[in-house]
Design a protein around this nucleic acid. Structure first.
Length: 818
RNA sequence: GCCUGGGUGGCGAAACGGUAGACGCAGGGGACUUAAAAUCCCCCGAUCGCAGGAUCAUGUGGGUUCGAAACCCACCCCAGGCACCA
C-alpha cells in the first residue's frame, strides 16, 4: 500500500512538469524512424566499437541488472558520437540455451517459437529504455544465417585438427535419461532437477583443443586493458607450471613410468610412486597377489564424481600394486601405488611422491606408514621430519653429489643431467583442459559432420551450410544419452541422392551455448554477409572492440573461449587482431531491496517495466548510474529514484520560460566549467556517479539565481543527455535546435575558469584543524604563515609552547607543530 | 586452505597523503497554500555545552608521517573466484 501511495505522488509530479511517457515515446519513435544510431561503414570519422554482452532472452524479460551495463555503454556511445566518432553499438541475442528446451519438454511449444516471443519482448524493453543501438545489425545465434558461420568456424577447427572425439566420463542420470552439466549436479551427486542419482559414465564427446593455445592465451593477457582480478582469474585457470618429466624404470617390466614434477630437486626424497586409477599402466604392472584389491579400488574410484574426487579435505585412500619402480638418481627401489588423489587429466597421470616436501604425499605416507626422507632444508642443516611437509625452497640435503645446491641450482643441474641420460627433460604443464564441446540436446547448433560406415568422419561441404536444425516431434531425450536429434531417422540418415543408399549418419550432438557467443561481435560488423563470415575491409575498420561491458560471471569461460576462437580466426586470416576485446569493464550485480541477490523465489525482483511506468526511462537510467561505481555490487532502492526524477525535473524547469542571453555571473560560470570538466573526465573514466553529483551541484547553484542563462541551461542539457537522452532531445529541440542532440558537439571547458581565485586555507596546530581563512590563490608561503600566526584560535592552541616546525602547503594549509 | 576485491552517518555513497561524510534518499523544522500535493529555504555522524567551542569518530590492534579512510605489519568480518593440478 505504502508504495502505491508513492506511485500516486509521482504521477502528480508528471502533471506538474511534463508528460514523461509522451516525450519518451516521441523520441524513441524518432530514433527508429531517423535511424539515428546507424554506424556507417564508409564514414571518414574515427571509429569506436562499444559492446555489451548480449543477453539470453529468457521468458522473464529484463531485470534491472541488464540496463546497468547497457546504460553505461549507452552513455559512452552517445558521448563518443558527440565527440565526432563513428560509433558501433549493436545488440543481439544469445538465443540457444536450455530453458527454451525445458519449456518445450513441459509444454510442447517449439523452442524456436518461445525464443522469438522472448526476443520480441527483450527488444521492446530495450527500446523502452532509450538505448542507442544500431538495429540494422541485430543478430541472433539461433538464426540459420548466423549459425551457418558458427558451423563454418567449427569446420575450420575440425579441418585443422583442433576438434576431436574422445570418450570421457560425464554426468549421466539414468532416471532422466540424459547427460547433465556439472552445474546441474548437486554436491551430493544427485540431479538438481528431480534429485535422481547421477553417475560417472564414459561417453563419446567432441572436444576442442584449447590447450594448444594455452601459452598464447596466457601471454597475451598482459597487453589487455582489463580489470587485474579478471586477468588473474584467467591466469589461474590456465595454470601454467614449469617442471620436469622424469622416466622411472619399472622392475621386471619393459614399460617406463613417466611422471611430471615441479620439484625435480627432491628426487632423492622419493619414497613411493602413485598412478591415477585410470592410468593405463595400472593393469600391466599390478602383481597377481594385488590384482583383486587394485581392481576393487579402481572401480570404487570410477563411481565418484569429479567434485568428491577432488575434495582436498577427504582422507587419503589408495592401494599397493605390488610393483616397484627404480629411482634413476640413486637406484632406490620404491613401491608403486594407485590413489585417487592423482588425477589422470593432469600432467602424466602419475607422480613421484616426496612426502617430506609435499603435503598430500605427507598425508598419504602417514596414512599408509610409508617412509619419509628429508631432502630440503632452509639452511643446509637437516632438521628432521615434522608434523607437516616442508614445501619451501631451500638447500639440498641427503641428495648425494647435489647436497648444498639451492633449489633453483639443483633444478637446472638435474634437468641437464637427466636429459643427458635420455630419461628426463624440462616440461611445462597447464591446468587448462580441452573444452568439452558437445551436448546431447536439441536446442543448439548441429555439428556439420557425417559418420561414414567405415568409421571415418567427414565434413558437410561448406556450400551446404547451414546444416539446419530440423523440427522434431518430441523434445524428449533419446534415453540412451543421445540428443532428441537421434530420433529423427530421416535427418540422421544421409542418402545418396542418385541411389537412395545410406552413405552415412549425421552427428546428433549439438554445440554448447558458448559457441554462438564466441564470435558474435564479429557478425555485428557484417551481419548480412552471405558469402563469408565477415568482410575483411569491414573487419579491419571496426576491430578490435574498444570497450566491452558485462558481468563478472563470464570472467573465465566466455572470455577465454572467445579469445581462443579469435586467435584461431587470426591464424586463419579471418581477423587482423590477436585479441578481440581491448578494454573490459565488469558491472557489479544489482541486489534486491533486501540486499539479497534478486530471484523469483525470494520475490525481490525489480521489473524495469514497472520502474519506467512510474518514473520514466531517463530517471531509471540516471538512478542506475547514480547508485554507486559501476563495478560495485549494490542494492536497489526504489525510493532513491525519486531524487533522480527531481533532478531531471529541475533541469526541465531551467529550460522553461525566457532564457537570458547574457553571460552568467562569474561564480556560476566557474561552476559550469568545473562541471563540464568533471562530467567529461567522469565519462572517460566511467565514473558516472560522481559526474551526476557534479551536475546536481550545478543545478542547485543555478537555481539560486532567479535568471536562467542560456549559457548554463543549454550546456547542462548537452551534459546530461547521455544519461537522460529523452529529456536531452526534448529540451534541445525546445531550445531551438534540430534533432538529434547526438549530432551536437560535446561542450568544452576553459581550464583557467575552473580554477578558483579565492581559496580557503586551513590552519592546523599539531595536525588538528583550528581555523581557516579565505586567501587569494597562490598566496605566498610567508604570507600564509603570517596569517596563521595572526589567528587567535591558532595562538590559543599553541599554549605558549615554542614552535618546532611550520609546514606550509600552498593553496591548502598551514600546520604548526610545537 | 589459496588468490582477488571490500569494510566510512539511519541508507546509497564522496574524498591528488592535507577541512572525513560532496551528491542523493530517509528524517526534522520553516515558507507558500483554505488545506494537501508539488515547489522553495534551513538543519541533519556521536558525546558534552545556553553558546563560543571542545572531545571522539572511516572493522580491530600496532607502525610510518608535521598530517593517514588512503601507505606498511598483524588480526577480524563480508563478497567473488579457485580448490588434492604434483
Amino acid at each position: 500500500m505504502a508504495t502505491d501511495d508513492k506511485a500516486d505522488d509521482i504521477h502528480e509530479v508528471e502533471r506538474k512538469t511534463y508528460d514523461i511517457h509522451a516525450v519518451e515515446q516521441k523520441w524513441q519513435d524518432y530514433w527508429l524512424r531517423d535511424n539515428t544510431f546507424h554506424a556507417n561503414d564508409d564514414s571518414p570519422k574515427p571509429k569506436f566499437y562499444v559492446l555489451d554482452m548480449f543477453p539470453y532472452p529468457s521468458g522473464a524479460g529484463l531485470h534491472v541488472g541488464h540496463p546497468e551495463g547497457y546504460t553505461a555503454t549507452d552513455i559512452v556511445s552517445r558521448y563518443k558520437w558527440m565527440n565526432g566518432f563513428e560509433v558501433l553499438h549493436p545488440m543481439g541475442w544469445d538465443s540457444f540455451g536450455l530453458p527454451a528446451e525445458q519449456y518445450a519438454l513441459q509444454t510442447g511449444v517449439p523452442p524456436a517459437i518461445t525464443t522469438k516471443k522472448n526476443i520480441d519482448n527483450f527488444r521492446r524493453q530495450i527500446r523502452m529504455l532509450g538505448l542507442a543501438y544500431d538495429w540494422d545489425r541485430e543478430v541472433a545465434t539461433t538464426d540459420p544465417g548466423y549459425y551457418r558461420w558458427t558451423q563454418w568456424i567449427f569446420l575450420q577447427l575440425f579441418k585443422n585438427g583442433l576438434a576431436y572425439q574422445t570418450e570421457i566420463p560425464v554426468n549421466w542420470c539414468p532416471a532422466l535419461g540424459t547427460v547433465l552439466a556439472d552445474e546441474e549436479v548437486t554436491a551430493d551427486g544427485t540431479s538438481e532437477r528431480g534429485n535422481y542419482p547421477v553417475e560417472r559414465r564414459p561417453m563419446r564427446q567432441w572436444m576442442l583443443r584449447i590447450t594448444a593455445y594455452a601459452d598464447r592465451l596466457l601471454a597475451d593477457l598482459d597487453g589487455l586493458d582489463w580489470p587485474e582480478p579478471i586477468k588473474e582469474m584467467q591466469r589461474n585457470w590456465i595454470g601454467r607450471s614449469e617442471g620436469a618429466e622424469v622416466d622411472f624404470a619399472v622392475e621386471g617390466v619393459a614399460d617406463t613410468l613417466k611422471i611430471f614434477t615441479t620439484r625435480p630437486d627432491t628426487l632423492f626424497g622419493v619414497t613411493y610412486m602413485v598412478l591415477a586409477p585410470e592410468h593405463p599402466l595400472v593393469a600391466r604392472i599390478t602383481t597377481p597377489a594385488q590384482a583383486e584389491a587394485v581392481r576393487s579400488y579402481v572401480t570404487t574410484a570410477s563411481r565418484l564424481n569429479d567434485q568428491s574426487r577432488t575434495d582436498a579435505t577427504r582422507e587419503k585412500s589408495g592401494v599397493f600394486t605390488g610393483a616397484y619402480a627404480i629411482n634413476p638418481v640413486n637406484g632406490a627401489r620404491v613401491p608403486i601405488w594407485v590413489a585417487d588423489y592423482v588425477l589422470i587429466s593432469y600432467g602424466t597421470g602419475a607422480i613421484m611422491a616426496v612426502p617430506a616436501h609435499d603435503q598430500r604425499d605427507f598425508e598419504f605416507a602417514k596414512a599408509f606408514d610409508l617412509p619419509i626422507i628429508e631432502v630440503v632444508s632452509p639452511d643446509a642443516t637437516p632438521r628432521g621430519v615434522g608434523e607437516t611437509a616442508l614445501t619451501i625452497e631451500g638447500v639440498a640435503v641427503n641428495s648425494g653429489a647435489y647436497d648444498g645446491l639451492t633449489t633453483a641450482q639443483f633444478k637446472s643441474r638435474i634437468a641437464a643431467d637427466l636429459e643427458a641420460r635420455g630419461i628426463g627433460k624440462l616440461a611445462v604443464k597447464y591446468r587448462l583442459r580441452d573444452w568439452v564441446f558437445s551436448r546431447q540436446r536439441y536446442w543448439g547448433e548441429p555439428f556439420p559432420l557425417i559418420h561414414k560406415a567405415d568409421g571415418s568422419i567427414v565434413a558437410v561441404p561448406e556450400a551446404e551450410l547451414p546444416l539446419m536444425l530440423p523440427e522434431v516431434g518430441s523434445y524428449q531425450v533419446a534415453g540412451n544419452g543421445e540428443s532428441p536429434l537421434a530420433t529423427i531417422e530421416d535427418w540422421v540418415s544421409v542418402k545418396d541422392p542418385a541411389t537412395g543408399e545410406e552413405v552415412g549418419r549425421r552427428e546428433t550432438h549439438t554445440m554448447p551455448q558458448w559457441a554462438g557467443s564466441c564470435w558474435y561481435f564479429l557478425r555485428y560488423i557484417d551481419p548480412k554477409n552471405s558469402d563469408r563470415l565477415i568482410d575483411p575491409a569491414k573487419e579491419s575498420k571496426w576491430m578490435p572492440v574498444d570497450l566491452y561491458v558485462g558481468g563478472a560471471e563470464h570472467a573465465v569461460l566466455h572470455l577465454l573461449y572467445s579469445r581462443f576462437w579469435h586467435k584461431f580466426l587470426y591464424d586463419q586470416g579471418v581477423v587482423h587482431t590477436l585479441e578481440p576485446f581491448q578494454k573490459l569493464v565488469n558491472q557489479g550485480l544489482i541486489l534486491g531491496e533486501d540486499g539479497q541477490k534478486m530471484s523469483k523465489s525470494r520475490g525481490n525482483v525489480v521489473n524495469p517495466d514497472d520502474v519506467v511506468a512510474k518514473f520514466g526511462a531517463d530517471a531509471m537510467r540516471v538512478y542506475e548510474m547514480f547508485m554507486g561505481p559501476l563495478e560495485v555490487v549494490k542494492p536497489w532502492n526504489t525510493q532513491g529514484i525519486v531524487g533522480c526524477r527531481r533532478f531531471l525535473d529541475r533541469i526541465y524547469r531551467m529550460c522553461e520560460g525566457p532564457l537570458s542571453e547574457d553571460p552568467a555571473p562569474l561564480a556560476l560560470r566557474r561552476t559550469l566549467h568545473q562541471t563540464i570538466r568533471k562530467v567529461t573526465q567522469g565519462i572517460e573514466a566511467m565514473r558516472f556517479n560522481t559526474a551526476i553529483a557534479q551536475m546536481m551541484i550545478l543545478v542547485n547553484e543555478a537555481a539560486k539565481d532567479p535568471v536562467r542563462y542560456r549559457e548554463v541551461s543549454q550546456t547542462l542539457v548537452l551534459l546530461v543527455s547521455p544519461w537522460a537522452p529523452h529529456v536531452g532531445e526534448e529540451l534541445w529541440e525546445r531550445l531551438g535546435h534540430a534533432p538529434s542532440i547526438v549530432k551536437a558537439s560535446w561542450p568544452t571547458f576553459d581550464p583557467d575558469l575552473c580554477i578558483e581565485d579565492e581559496i580557503k586555507v586551513i590552519f592546523q596546530v599539531n595536525g588538528k584543524l583550528r581555523d581557516d581563512a579565505m586567501v587569494p590563490r597562490d598566496t605566498s608561503d610567508e604570507e600564509l604563515e603570517r596569517l596563521a600566526f595572526e589567528s587567535d584560535k591558532v595562538l590559543r592552541h599553541l599554549e605558549g609552547r615554542p614552535v618546532r616546525k611550520v609546514i606550509v602547503v600552498r593553496n591548502r594549509l598551514v600546520n604548526i607543530v610545537n
